[in-house]
Design a protein around this nucleic acid. Sequence first.
RNA 1: GCCGGGGUGGCGGAACUGGUAGACGCGCCGGACUCAAAAUCCGGUUCUGGCGACAGAGUGAGAGUUCGAGUCUCUCUCCCGGCACCA
Length: 837
Amino acid sequence: MRNVPISLNRSYVPGDIEPAAQRFWEERQSFAAREIPGREKFYCLSMLPYPSGALHMGHVRNYSIGDAIARYQRMEGRNVLQPMGWDAFGLPAENAAIKHGVPPARWTYANIEHMRGQLKRLGFGYDWAREVTTCRPEYYRWEQWLFTRLFREGLVYKKNALVNWDPVDRTVLANEQVVEGRGWRSGAPVERREIPQWFMRITAYADELLAELDRLDGWPESVRTMQRNWIGRSEGLEIEFEVEGGAAPLTVFTTRPDTLMGVTYMAVAAEHPLAVAAAENDAQVAAFLEECRRTHVAEAALETMEKRGLPLGLAARHPLTGEALPVWVANFVVMAYGSGAVMGVPGHDQRDWEFARRHGLPVRQVIEPAGGGAVDLEQGAAVVHGRLVNSGRFDGLSSDEAFTALARHFEATGRGRRRVLYRLRDWGVSRQRYWGAPIPIINCPLCGAVPVSDEDLPVVLPDGGAGSTLEHMPEFVNVACPTCGGAAERETDTFDTFVESSWYFLRYCCADNDAAMTDERVDYWMPVDQYVGGVEHAILHLLYARFYQKLLRDHGLACDGEPFARLLTQGMVLKDGAKMSKSHGNTVDPQALIERYGADTVRVFTLFASPPEQSLEWSDAGVEGAFRFLKRLWSFAHAQRERVVMANAAAAADEFTDWRGLQASEPALGSLVHTVAGLVRQARFDYERKQFNTVISACMKLLNLLPEIAGPARRGNGAAVSARDRTTAAALGVLLRLLSPAAPHLAHHLWRELGYGEDILQAAWPRVEVDALALATVSLVVQVNGRLRGHIQVAPDADRGAIEQAALADPNVRRFVADRPVLKTVVVPGKLVNLVT
RNA sequence: GCCGGGGUGGCGGAACUGGUAGACGCGCCGGACUCAAAAUCCGGUUCUGGCGACAGAGUGAGAGUUCGAGUCUCUCUCCCGGCACCA
């Protein structure tokens, strides 16, 4: 039964018991998940790591949380799937290749080997048979396959686009990868370049992605808000303004058509055709456009960028009054949003107001606040909804009424229409990098872009060394066109790595299927019941993954609905107040900790130090504390080993038995069991709400209680198993189970050694007998006028009068009541009584 | 500026639907064991007063609702995170 002989007072050596427990799980395939129809499933997913070389504490925290949830759910009887994989494409592999002269593939696979070993050493219960490695052709072939379908459907397209160019990483970045005007990895100021790019039409799903956020009540509000803001839906009107001199009408989008009568100028972006045309005859304008192009990125992040601009010498006609409005080019107008032109309403838009003041344009009030009240347009714009004034026939309408009236007016005249605009842009997925999944397109001079046919998939990434680029591999590039057979060239861009991580959770359900992207097993496992990962993915990854779920659904490859039912975003790991990172030089190596204290201690500490969503302040002393706790449990278990083994042999004593008898014969022990029952309840409640710090706390309290339950050492080997022996065994059995999701190795070892059973993984969550919560007497707090003045013991069913009498019998209570009459008595059953005088 | 979250001992953090504020751990103080130290064990530890039972104050600030507020309402303040010329 045991691999290692155990002496009674052997000390706690995690380095012995942890690998033994891991071998046990591996031999039994304890975490292999099977689809069992009819049985309630639980899909517990942690964000897959990038194989950077070694685990860091952030990984350890993430996966300790995930594993605690998975193991708890298993105890609750659910059929648990907890997989793991590798987000294996990406820039660092190429950088490492250049730095160390190792091919990206070899570097990546070596890292995976090492990190997989680390995960196993931490004892996480993953189904390794489902492991997914995104840089393998077996994996990325399916995203290539899907891409060719999306291409035919028009859901992906290529266009010349101004892109964010990272001059250090020499690649295009998605908007999401630009942080404050700098590349998210390199930190270099981003430049703008025009390059042909592949895009995925995520905007086609914008409405659905937005609407479903409202129903994602298992997600943190903050993440939902971030996604809402990112999608940025605006309802408004598109209105055409005639331009004098025969140019095409100037179209603007506004969410405030009710302020239309307050328009005093028009403004267009520097890239707008009107501005570009004007620049041809106006050197000053040309210089301004050039300046905008140069400064756009560098200064965009500046909080107080001046509202600058120049008149273009053009006039637009107000669509209602025919008034001539000067057209300006302005640096605050963004070409990429709406039509790149805005109507200037300085009376009711702060930005327009600043521009108007600077350039001496008129400011006009056309809205008055609903409740009346003065408006001082000298101080700034009145950004309010209210009632229209100075607006001719619209005077007196509310802002909402005016919106509707103007929408009807323009729709009738054909000079405008209702429109919904999104901040969200289509997703640029092209990357000019070697270490990524090739985009499965062949560019033919005659046929244009042609998708690679199914039988030629996958387009395998050719072997490459340091500094490889696909462009410079003729054997990869030169290919016959699938349509005409003529000479053609492969696309040499690779996918953004966010493409791989957008559907890996579906692939885990059916990782062994080499005939299809997914199969019916996704219907069994999806959606993910609990997703755990860093909040830094609140927008990027989590939005793309939701998008992919819908894409796959529309191809019959996934079920309807959201991919992640519940989301837990774990907080950062800090040390000395700063995020633990290489750049701060404040990292703690998990490997060293595991070697010194064992996996259980590291796991218990990370769960105990703070609630999962909050940041975790690293503390070496705290780790020591966790280790001490496990050592104390170890030595208690061994001190009591003999009687516990006997009790367990006599009866399956993993539950409290004969509770009523115990309460009658040994009331003190009965009361302790009552406390244990309370801790079980608390721990369950806290596991459910994922507050693991208090779960660990409950386990510590239980351990502190155990010596009292066990009482003095058992005497005489021949003595029969006593009620106290049974109770000790039961209480320890409860503790082992409560703790097992956090410290699975120690729990596993003691469970077997003390004769509870073969495998604690088969044990169910401890049941709390309702009876065990009933006590002979209950303790009540006595307050006088809401202030604590004493404690009383009463029968659980004592009535108001008896309670009041008992309260007044307390000398301290009487002292504060003095001779005043009790006007009111508030009784909270089982808790307190408050005497109001 | 807008949106989201938060402010509780020396520290990390508890307090489930309003009901004993500070659980549990760390640290610190005292004691036991030891020639001594480490480890371990026992006791104490919000502040103020008191030998003590106990009393007073106390959850960022101020008001309010309530028999009773860390928890609910309003005003303010500070911190963290996200977004930001988005029309």
